[in-house]
Design a protein around this nucleic acid. Structure first.
Lengths: 93, 93
DNA sequence: GTTATATTTAGCCATCTGTCTAATTAGTTA
DNA sequence: TAACTAATTAGACAGATGGCTAAATATAAC
């Protein structure tokens, strides 16, 4: 679970996860959203994969990444429970 | 806000916050709960202070640390909202 | 089979991080 | 003032992190 927190500690990786909330995206599509080289992005994908937060499915020459929503939720719940916080979440805007 | 995420990415610091949920504690009291030297702990306190997650009040020779609960809640809500997660928090056990 | 495209791996580098020991600061007590 | 205690600051160091370029891999298209 510590891998998850490490993964979440970088803004680029948080944005990747955010982008994947709206649907699967290829490495290239994700890369376009950032000012980093492909290898740099690839490393971020690896960190997220190691934490099991995303999964990559190869099809043709490209790799489509998918968010593991339940693990993300689990991580959030685990954090909340560690801090014994009870949040009243505002309704979606 | 990035300082907050960085602060949360270390297990020692998460445990410090957890311990402070049950009430204020001095640097020394907190230090006893970890296998680290006082200077190491002091650095962790600094990181948490820089992120505004805790506040230290000096009294006599010791410093009493207090958790900033509302900032912690804010950080959690901000994370949840970034990921557009809606958690159904289980009731406290 | 060669070329083009998408992505990763390898290797390098500067900076950040978490730890330590030693030294310093500040308050209390004798 | 001197000694003691609580905590921090200074400085060093190994290892992790996030970025890059260059090279490798794998699939597709010609």
């Amino acid at each position: 679970m510590n891998l998850v927190y490490k993964a979440l500690s970088d803004p680029t990786r948080r944005k990747i996860l955010e982008l994947l909330r709206t649907g699967d995206k290829t490495a290239g599509e994700l890369g376009q959203e950032f000012p980093h080289t492909a290898p740099t992005m690839s490393k971020h994908f690896s960190v997220l994969k190691d934490a099991d937060l995303i999964q990559g499915d190869k099809s043709g020459t490209s790799i489509s990444y998918r968010l593991n929503v339940s693990l993300l939720e689990e991580a959030m719940l685990s954090l909340l429970s560690q801090f014994k916080l009870e949040l009243s979440q505002p309704a979606k805007e």
